[in-house]
Design a protein around this nucleic acid. Structure first.
Lengths: 259, 259
DNA sequence: GCAATAGTGTCTTTAAGACACTATCAT
DNA sequence: ATGATAGTGTCTTAAAGACACTATTGC
């Protein structure tokens, strides 16, 4: 083959490919294709009064107007760079603060989960200390904390009950191989508070000694030097170390129970 | 309050709510709101020749026309009841068979991951025995298996490289606390095949004894009564028990390595 | 019998479970 | 000093790691 002809052909075809992709993108109209209703929802957990609760909001609009559901909504394509941003935006809207733990839970989709039609929601799972957002929640009437053991009595919008169940399973599983419950505590906390948080989430007592061993091994915390009077011996106050990732243990707590 | 008036008011307001919701749903036009481009993608892994590979397809259309990417595409709202159906439909299209393992991985979204605009893809993670789909893959020219250790050399469409990395992490983690690699094996398999699959995925040798203990404890398998000649002593052939869920162990293998 | 692969026995190690023990505080 | 809560010491237990051992096959 003539090398000049080969080069010419190559240059031309590259040019054609680029022109054609350019034109394609310029002419692309996202609204041409039927697409599902896309939303983002948050399952925000918090602890108070020896109970694990989930944040619900009263729906202002159809469908399920007036019903309680998860705080969430549509993606704002100008504001949000990803669904994480959408989740955060909605959480800040409702609680006034950024939760210290936020991870993607799962995406729920289907033809029938929304009466308006085929829909998809990316659910996020978040934890916060109750004290950090209580003033904000108390100031509105469209948001409330539902204790998770009352979930069966409360009818929720869409499949939000099912989504909360998934989030609860995730929280319980992760609590067995990490110290995730610290994200439900105030910035400074005692070991007893961490133990109580863990026990409320797991629904059963754990060995304090096991918790302390993990606490030390995790490398996630530092002593504040302060301590807190609880009526008897003062308890040391700890805080999370800056910029340290969550530690995952290689074994689960409570090996006996379930799988 | 007059009880008759109360009942009347209640009945009326319920009626009004229903009428208003009916009208709302009737008038609802899903295309009114700007919504992201929504797709579903699959990360299908398979083992062959002592290598872990991922299935790629050559893109027939813009954007990234001609580039390799994950097998996936748009939701067909008439065919698919959920994104799981979309994932399965695309997998069957490309491989000719239903993979024995399919779970949701994560949803990737963002303003910039697709040149056409704000997009969201729900990624699924699947495993299959190479022999079960090899004839179909070989019959087409737009699909290939990419060994995962060659991932760095291959440029992929969109953020598909990143998605594969997430899937790989999930596969490796789960291999440490379950016998997930069996889903990469043929229906009948030997313990040595399971061990080799596990070692390829983890990238290091494991204790055969530990594997056998887990194999028995899992309750997931049954002896076929058959055995397979391998050049030396014959190895027993096992199969997965019908209708038995995957067993999750309470400890990880390879505690030393990483977290 | 020998080499090779399959499969077992059993000791060590790791980290959790159990629980008795000591320490520190308010009163 | 006492009682209550904080925190430690240490033995037991469960399951993985290590590795030597026996079993079965083809040649």
């Amino acid at each position: 083959m003539d090398i000049r002809k080969f080069v010419l052909t190559t240059v031309l075809s590259v040019h054609i490919v680029m022109r054609s992709e350019e034109r394609y993108l310029k002419d692309y109209d996202a609204s041409r294709f039927a697409s599902p209703i896309v939303t983002v929802d948050n399952v925000l957990f918090s602890l108070d009064n020896n109970e694990l609760s989930v944040l619900l909001v009263k729906r202002a609009n159809h469908p399920y107007q007036g019903a309680w559901g998860l705080p969430g909504g549509f993606i704002d394509m100008t504001l949000d760079e990803s669904t994480r941003d959408t989740a955060l935006r909605k959480l800040v809207e409702k609680t006034g603060v950024i939760p210290p733990w936020l991870e993607q839970l799962e995406t729920f989709s289907g033809k029938y989960r929304d009466p308006r039609g085929w829909s998809l929601t990316t659910a996020w799972f978040a934890l916060i200390a109750r004290t950090d957002c209580q003033p904000h929640i108390e100031s509105v009437s469209d948001a409330k904390w539902l204790p998770t053991h009352q979930l069966t009595q409360q009818t929720l919008a869409f499949d939000h009950g099912e989504i909360i169940t998934h989030a609860l399973n995730r929280l319980r599983q992760k609590t067995r191989y990490s110290l995730l419950p610290v994200y439900c505590l105030a910035e400074e906390f005692t070991l007893t508070q961490l133990q109580e948080a863990t026990e409320i989430i797991l629904g059963q007592a754990i060995q304090r000694k096991s918790l302390i061993r993990r606490f030390e091994a995790s490398g996630m915390f530092e002593d504040t030097g302060k301590s807190k009077a609880t009526g008897a011996r003062k308890a040391r106050l700890y805080r999370r170390k800056e910029g340290v990732d969550i530690h995952l243990f290689s074994r689960n707590l409570l090996n006996d129970t379930a799988g």
